[in-house]
Design a protein around this nucleic acid. Structure first.
Lengths: 344, 344
DNA sequence: AGTTAGCACTCGAAAGAATAGAGTGCTAAT
DNA sequence: ATTAGCACTCTATTCTTTCGAGTGCTAACT
């Protein structure tokens, strides 16, 4: 463990580096931070901290920058102490997020944009995973009997639709009857459960509709799965260009191309563990090489106490973690509250 | 007008500059292009071309680059001669665009991605303007009587939905009746016409439903307008970083931030005249300062011979216009054909 | 009169040299 | 244990020099 003075020196370097993005020298610390010791003493402490892996020298006659290990230490301490102060602008944030919409997708989209604006970092969010939500209403309809529209209302209040084509014609009178049956059968189940149920043929048989049902159910199942595909929202991609770490155009391109690749990104974000709500992944802790110099902060948003999606920010490891943690907490609080109110 | 030799020199410079992105000298032209005259003669021609505004010298002892005026001349000649060769990969393109979907929005989204891949430029598209499309089916439904779902099927076969809240409860039995009336009244009208009709109260009065109708129609009108908001799709934003013209990070950021600002971009693209299908706006011809060094090529895609949206690319004025025109033509052809087939 | 070879001149980009200064690490004194 | 002092290191900056591509002009050629 690090003794108190070493910690103070380390945090001072982290703080100073946060503002300058430059390597920090011993004299800077002794001048700007009142540690009660001379530059030479700090120099010795810095040397020790480097030996222990908390500081890095870009070259032999430069100052030092914090390592991933240092940020990890700092962040862990932040998360433990958990000195959360509430952001003042709660109400404004809520209004900004919700605007006029009641659709969960729009709320997440707005949140992503606002998060990027508030933080000046690239913000990302994963759409509400509606396969975890409970079905409230399902409705089939058609114009011509061949192109079937499936409309879904789920427990978060959002509406999805999907269009599919069938060779056998089924007209609205029958579609409405089927919808009624499906509503009875599927009410309050999650999409995952419904798909399972269809797969296991674990369903009701009503004589006169049984043939039609057997025919159309696989289409419905596929349709439901298409609807539940995870979407990702990205906002403020160009924010990365404001960081001196990304003045190099090739680095910037690598970063951006990685973010633009939705599939990989969905994977990365989905797999972040968010047991306690907030998760921070620092530099080398990230799997993809393109993210080895970045930190990712994500938190989940909930609906009836179940996590249904994530929202987060990405940027260089040199981050104002304290400030960002607070913003993220506020954001997820607000989103959750909006969802709660939306559901009455 | 330029005589033939001047034109040849100018086109040679355009061609050479296209590949190198460097200023072109007289010797390069005499070496690489068989014009049958010496470098000195070309030098004289170049001097004339500069006087006439077709060439620009970055500095006094450098070669020349084509001006916007030169590109304009070149492009106008291309568009007049119109030596279109069909791209071979038509079928592949169609499959790539359509994938499995029948939703017009998805088709445009896929097209944008493919266009960016094929061209290596940033691609943009404006969503099908469904307010210009004819209504095929409208359906209202609700779970609780307060949150009304409006589902819309239009003549392009795409489905939209919108959720709105009303204080007075209206239940499905009445909503279905209303839907039936609305379908009769609105069938084959465009959304614009429907909104007008509602505004002018130019509607049927069926005794028992008249109060409910008066109450709900304004909500429907607003809902329809929300549905018809223009959306924009962007793909390959980072492609700009591959051009030597945008090695400078501040230039790149200006470009990207402009593209990321959806409202301005929608405005810009919407206002491009596309009478003959394809439109090319070169450098200074673009209004926004951020686009003064870019060219924008857009074309519209059609549904039943009516233009309902646009797709295009954006990049530095130094473009392979010939190749890009062909790709763009092929793309719009394919999109139009898919739409045609979708409608049977 | 149009074309071309020849050459002096220009200017930026690249390479090299000199300088400044921030920072370290060590030593010796406190 | 702490600190002042100092030699040393290394980068970033600035200034010079060099190099070469390219022009524009002149005079000769066809």
């Amino acid at each position: 463990m690090l003794d108190e003075r070493k910690l103070k020196v380390l945090y001072a370097i982290i703080d100073s580096h946060l503002n300058t993005a430059e390597p920090i020298g011993s004299r800077t610390i002794s001048k700007d931070y009142d540690l009660g010791v001379s530059a030479a003493t700090i120099r010795n402490e810095m040397s020790d901290l480097e030996d222990r892996g908390y500081l890095i020298k870009p070259h032999s006659s430069a100052g030092r920058i914090p390592s991933d290990k240092a940020y990890r230490l700092y962040v862990d301490q932040l998360l433990t102490n958990n000195e959360k102060k509430e952001l003042e602008r709660n109400q404004e944030i809520k209004e900004e997020i919700q605007q006029e919409t009641k659709q969960t997708e729009d709320i997440i989209k707005n949140s992503t944009r606002l998060l990027s604006q508030l933080t000046s970092y690239t913000a990302i969010a994963i759409s509400p995973q509606i396969n975890k939500l409970r079905l409230k209403h399902i409705q089939l309809m058609s114009m011509d009997g061949n192109n079937i529209i499936l409309v879904l209302l789920n427990s978060s209040g959002s509406v999805q639709n999907n269009l599919f084509y069938i060779d056998e014609k089924i007209y609205n009178d029958n579609l409405f009857l089927i919808s009624k049956i499906l509503n009875d059968e599927f009410n309050n189940l999650t999409i995952d459960e419904i798909v399972d149920k269809i797969k296991n043929k674990d369903i009701f048989k009503i004589e006169e509709l049984s043939t039609i049902l057997d025919y159309i159910l696989p289409f419905i199942s596929k349709s439901l799965q298409e609807i539940s595909e995870t979407k990702i929202y990205i906002d403020g991609l160009t924010k990365i260009l404001n960081f001196p770490e990304y003045r190099d155009i090739d680095k910037a391109r690598d970063f951006m191309e990685f973010i633009e690749d939705e599939k990989t990104l969905i994977n990365l974000i989905s797999n972040m563990e968010n047991e306690d709500g907030l998760t921070i992944s620092i530099g080398e802790e990230n799997e993809p090489i393109e993210m080895k110099h970045c930190s990712i902060i994500t938190t989940n948003y909930q609906f009836t106490d179940k996590s249904i999606g994530k929202i987060g920010i990405i940027g260089p490891t040199r981050m104002d973690y304290l400030k960002l943690i607070n913003i993220m907490d506020t954001m997820s609080d607000n989103i959750n509250e909006i969802f709660k109110i939306l559901m009455g």
